[in-house]
Every structure is written in structure tokens, then in C-alpha cells.
Design a protein around this nucleic acid. Structure first.
Length: 445
RNA sequence: GUGGUCGUAGCUCAGCUGGUAGAGCACCGGGUUGUGGUCCCGGGGGUCGCGGGUUCAAGUCCCGUCGAUCACCCCA
């Protein structure tokens, strides 16, 4: 068999990277739970009509098919986000849930896009959502960014900025301006940072049917950004009036004010933010990592008032999702994260000869029983080689069983210090008990 | 899905206008008769991503494919 090659878009990390990922995931989940979000996992597949219910994503969905007898499961697809399956789950289990229902979900999702750094076909999202019956109080829109702000700011990563907008602001503004279809306008405005105002204006007249004056007004709106409520007056000063615009501005002010009170500097209102899935109806979030602005959003979401509804039942929701794989892919790409060792092992028990393996095993067992990750040396090689085995993996301690009734001793191979020790009571320093994830000092900015 | 760039040892790379592969680091062994990291000596390792083509001869040219990356699309 020839050497296997990677599959494009399906990243696989090495164990040190996976240890980093697991620690970040554990801390993210912990933060979500501190805010009362309950854990949930949904199946990997959804009926295709559920997945395709909203928007243009059809070409991205991986369809499930059996090799033989392709009739049976032909209408199933892998989910491409966690919100659509969640909406389905809520409808299905509405009778068993208490509302407002807040849950978090950390799972793989799949999208058939062309991969590049930070963009994958299989990736991990850490998602929180809150849904309620009939109506969802708006204060939840303000809570979302605070939760992920807490989660992300607790990690050894560069600072994040959450940019917030509200689709009612854009749609109301465009409508007040006389532009009926907001979609092409949003798409054009979204390119502002990349292609500049001149080309966006040209796009607006070409693809959105805007006059020069309308295009200019759209650009003026898109240029507005502020970390506080001052943006609203600047929008009103543009002279466009529309009930939806007013509603959107009021909502956006509430999000920004709440964030400014809770986490100054975390959230900024930015009226050119317009992307995201097409089921968003109000607040939209997008997040950039300092130093990685050009790599896109690492955390996005928004308010969806119509996603979960069947017949007379309606479950409006708001949610936001951390792109864990993107975040890690970008940071790994610049070697910006390190872990203190490549394996969980804290102690390596050295071996004088194979006959000593049972005794070494008892030492290891005593340490493990007290929560100290321990492995026994693979072979009774020279101690130098056994120490080197530990060193290569970053294992901080080597345990030497005492010869002929002498006391055991344990060596910190970083300092070289070696002391007598008893496996029933010895404790490593707290900082060495578990691998520690930290920002790499050599990381470029 | 469309287009561009790139693909030589585990890593970073060299290899001139085509003449049948090299360095540093890493790794392994020895010096050092079971306590590593320095130093010295020695050693293993590459179907030059893969498959076809042109040629007496291809790492070097052409085509395809896979992978990485960038732009578009879209978005975490």
C-alpha cells in the first residue's frame, strides 16, 4: 500500500495540538456552563429538506449515500452548522423542554467549500443558543457576545473584538432609501474593506440597481462604527427614515450599551457587518482576532426569528458559534500556542531490568491512584536513554526505584535536581501535574 | 465549484541552460560499563507528492491528478 496522503479540508492534529484543542474546549464548555447553558449533542445528519430549507447552501451540503442500494438514505445530509439541527431538535422536543431554553453544543460540522488556512470542510464549532416560545426577549441578544467574550478572553490567544450589526438597520435604511432588495446591497457592502468604497459603489449600481446617490448613502452607513451608542446619532444624521431602521437602531444600542458596561472594549457596533447565514433576522455578530483580521471571523452568529416554526408554533432564537477549528488552524499556522509537554505523562518510572517491571508498575499504580499521570519506561536501557525518552516528550520527572532496599528517588530532569521520594505521598508541583497550554513567546504578531 | 502559485530526507532548504540526488538541524550507534542535555567519531534515511508523456537521458520540460496556499464564491 502506498503512503496515504491527507484529505483536503479534513484536518487532523498531532497529539500536542489535540491536547491544546481539548483544553480550550474544556474551558469554553466550562464558561458556557457558568452561564447556565445545558449540554446537547444532536446527530450528524439531518433530512436534506431540513438542511436546505434556508438559502443557497445546497451546494455546500454533503449528501449521505450508501455504496449499494443508494435508495434508502438518499435524502440525508451532514449538518453544515449547529443552529439548523438545534432548531429541528427544539421543534421535535418542544414538549419536553423548558423555555427559554439555553443550550451549548460542541460538534463537528461539514461544508463542501474549497479549503485554505482556517477554512475546512470538516470543522469544530462551539455554539450557544437561546430559544423561547413565541417571543424571545431582546436582552439575550446582548448576552450572547458577553458569554463568548468571557470564553475567548480566558484563553491564551490574542484579544478578540466582536463586531455587531443589526439587519433591521441595514434593511430599514436601504428601504428608506428606496432599495427594495437588501441582499445584493449587503453582499457589495461586505467587500468594503477588501476592494474599497469606489468599487463597492460601482458594484452597488451594477448589481443592486442603486443610483449614485443611493450607493453613496449606503457607503456612508457602512462607514459608521463605534464602541458606544454614538453610532445611532450618526446614522440618523444621514436623514433616512424607516420604522425598521429605528427598531434596529434601538436594538443595536442596547447590545452595545450592555457590552460596554460588562466588558469595555469587547464589542463594537460596525454597520458594515452584514454577513452570516441567511436565516438571521436582526442582530448579527462577527469576531476578529487581533493580528488575524484578514483571516475572517472566528466567531459569528445572530438572531433568527423564523428558523424554528411549524404551524402556529414559533421559537425565535439567538445564538453565536465559535469556530474552534478555524481559531486553532490560524494559531497553529503561526505556532502561536504551545503545550508544556507532548504527552499527558508527568512521571516516567525508570527500569533497571525487565525483572523490575512489576515493581515499577506498583510505583506507577501508586502515583496514578493519586491522580499523577505515570508511565513505565519502555525498556531497561541505560538510564541516560530512559531520561532522554522522557526529555523528548517533555515528561518532567523520572522516577528511580531504589536498589536493594534503598529509598526511591525522583529527578526533575529540567533542573537535574534529584531527591528521595515515596510513591505513596510524593506530589509534583501543581504546575507540573497536567500539561499547560500557553501562548508561544515566539509567536509573530 | 472557478482561477493563480507552490510540492526534493522528520524539519528548513540547495540542486546552473535536462546528464540518473546534497547541506544544516533532527534521528540512531559509539566514545561515556545504566543518570540525559555539551563535545568528538560513525551511521541509517529520499520510487525528488503521485501517474502518464517528450527525450539517448527528467528532480529539472509537457499533461493529468493529489496536497498546501492565495484570490473569487461563501462563511466558522
Amino acid at each position: 500500500m502506498s503512503k496515504p496522503t491527507p484529505l483536503s479540508g479534513f484536518p487532523e492534529w498531532l497529539p500536542p495540538q489535540r491536547m491544546i484543542e481539548q483544553q480550550l474546549l474544556a474551558r469554553i464548555a466550562r464558561t458556557f456552563e457558568l452561564y447556565g447553558f445545558a449540554p446537547l449533542e444532536t446527530r450528524a445528519v439531518e433530512p436534506l429538506d431540513q438542511l436546505l430549507r434556508k438559502g443557497e447552501t445546497s451546494k455546500e451540503v454533503y449528501v449521505l449515500r450508501r455504496l449499494q442500494d443508494s435508495g434508502g438514505d438518499a435524502d440525508l445530509g451532514l449538518h453544515f452548522d449547529l443552529t439548523v439541527p438545534f432548531a429541528r431538535f427544539v421543534l421535535e422536543n418542544a414538549g419536553r423542554l423548558q423555555f427559554p431554553f439555553r443550550r451549548y453544543q460542541i460538534q463537528k460540522v461539514w461544508r463542501g467549500e474549497r479549503p485554505q488556512e482556517g477554512r475546512y470542510r470538516e470543522f469544530l464549532q462551539a455554539d450557544i443558543d437561546i430559544v423561547d416560545r413565541d417571543t424571545l426577549p431582546f436582552h439575550y441578544d446582548a448576552e450572547m457576545p458577553l458569554v463568548v467574550g468571557d470564553a475567548l478572553r480566558g484563553l491564551p490567544i490574542p484579544p478578540v473584538t466582536i463586531m455587531v450589526n443589526n439587519r433591521k438597520v441595514c434593511e430599514g435604511f436601504y428601504r428608506g432609501l428606496g432599495l427594495a432588495d437588501p441582499e445584493p446591497v449587503l453582499r457589495a457592502v461586505d467587500k468594503l474593506d477588501k476592494i474599497g468604497p469606489g468599487k463597492v459603489a460601482a458594484l452597488l449600481t451594477e448589481t443592486a440597481g442603486a443610483t449614485d446617490a443611493q450607493a453613496a448613502a449606503c457607503l456612508e452607513l457602512a462607514a459608521i462604527a463605534a464602541p458606544d451608542a454614538s453610532f445611532a446619532d450618526r446614522v440618523r444624521a444621514l436623514g433616512v427614515t424607516d420604522p425598521l431602521l429605528d427598531e434596529g437602531l434601538d436594538e443595536l444600542v442596547r447590545v452595545v450599551d450592555a457590552a460596554a458596561a460588562h466588558s469595555p472594549g469587547l464589542v463594537v457596533a460596525d454597520l458594515k457587518i452584514a454577513r452570516g447565514l441567511d436565516y438571521y433576522t436582526g442582530t448579527v455578530y462577527e469576531t476578529v482576532l487581533a493580528g488575524y483580521e484578514s483571516s475572517g471571523s472566528i466567531c459569528s452568529g445572530g438572531r433568527y426569528d423564523n428558523l424554528a416554526s411549524s404551524g402556529a408554533e414559533r421559537f425565535p432564537g439567538v445564538g453565536i458559534s465559535i469556530g474552534v477549528s478555524r481559531l486553532l488552524g490560524l494559531l497553529f499556522g503561526r505556532s502561536a500556542l504551545t503545550v508544556s509537554r507532548a504527552v499527558p505523562t508527568c512521571v516516567l518510572v525508570a527500569l533497571t531490568d525487565e525483572d523490575a517491571r512489576p515493581a515499577a508498575g506498583r510505583v506507577a499504580g501508586a502515583l496514578r491512584s493519586r491522580g499523577i499521570a505515570t508511565e513505565v519506561a519502555p525498556a531497561a536501557a541505560k538510564f541516560g536513554k530512559q531520561i532522554r525518552y522522557a526529555e523528548r516528550r517533555g515528561i518532567p520527572f523520572v522516577w528511580f526505584p531504589g536498589a536493594d532496599g534503598a529509598a526511591d528517588s525522583v529527578k526533575d530532569i529540567r533542573s537535574g535536581e534529584q531527591v528521595d521520594a515515596d510513591a505513596a505521598v510524593w506530589q509534583p508541583p501543581a504546575a507540573d501535574l497536567l500539561p499547560v497550554v500557553s501562548a508561544a513567546v515566539t509567536a509573530g504578531s
